[in-house]
Amino acid sequence: MKGWRTGLAIGLALAVWRSSPGLAEEASPSLHPATEYLSTGMKAEQADLARNRGMLWVDQGAALWRQAQGVAGKACADCHGEAEASMRGVAARYPAVDATSNRLLNLEGRINQCRTTRQQAQALAYESNELLGLTAFIAYQSRGLPVNVATGGPAQPYVEAGRKLWNERQGQLNLACAQCHEAKAGHKLRGDTISSGVGTGYPVYRLEWQGMGSLHRRLRACQLGVRAIQFDQGAPEYLALELYLASRAAGLPIETPALRR
């Protein structure tokens, strides 16, 4: 008796579930790191730190971490100690609004702020091996930890600005980031598979660059592709976009240093 009733109930429940429209469409699309679209060989190379070419920059960053710099003659380690402990989880929270200056800083910006104000050294240039190395070294301390940026309070206007840029058509080809990275994620664009555009592995070693590059360098490549005016690395627009990307990527693991085609 009980058995058929239960069976009927499950059957009815299934029927209702199956006929309720739009269930699948309403679920928010799950995002994947671009790593998932890499060839098996490259995936293995990224995972194997002995073969991951990005580790050359991480090692360079580790050396810089201990080197005294600037007029103050201090190393990062003099204030922060062992990066393995003090920097763990930091990259997962960046970009973040700096409480004293009220400015949005990404990891590169924070590193340069420490250099100029505390070490009294010159800011490092974007795409210099030193800045790529330090950024990669610090982000590496968060490898595997879930992205977890603050999006409320003072960060909120930046998230909104980033979202606006993400959805805005631009360039002579009149395409928005979202059109490729939401609507067409998983599809081929020449040799690449378009990812969700989350950027959780930066700085990355990219074969096309034959070297390491920042997230902002990647964003410049996307803007070039649609024939748009490129922003400079570190520009406020890219910082806002970077925060918005991180807000979309909440929960995905940091993969620095990642490999890309």
Binding site: E168, R169, Q170, G171, Q172, N174, L224, R227, A228, I229, Q230
Partner: peptide, 9 residues
């Protein structure tokens, strides 16, 4: 009605 078209274009 295009936004931020790069200079050469």
């Amino acid at each position: 009605n295009l936004t931020r078209v790069a200079a050469p274009f």
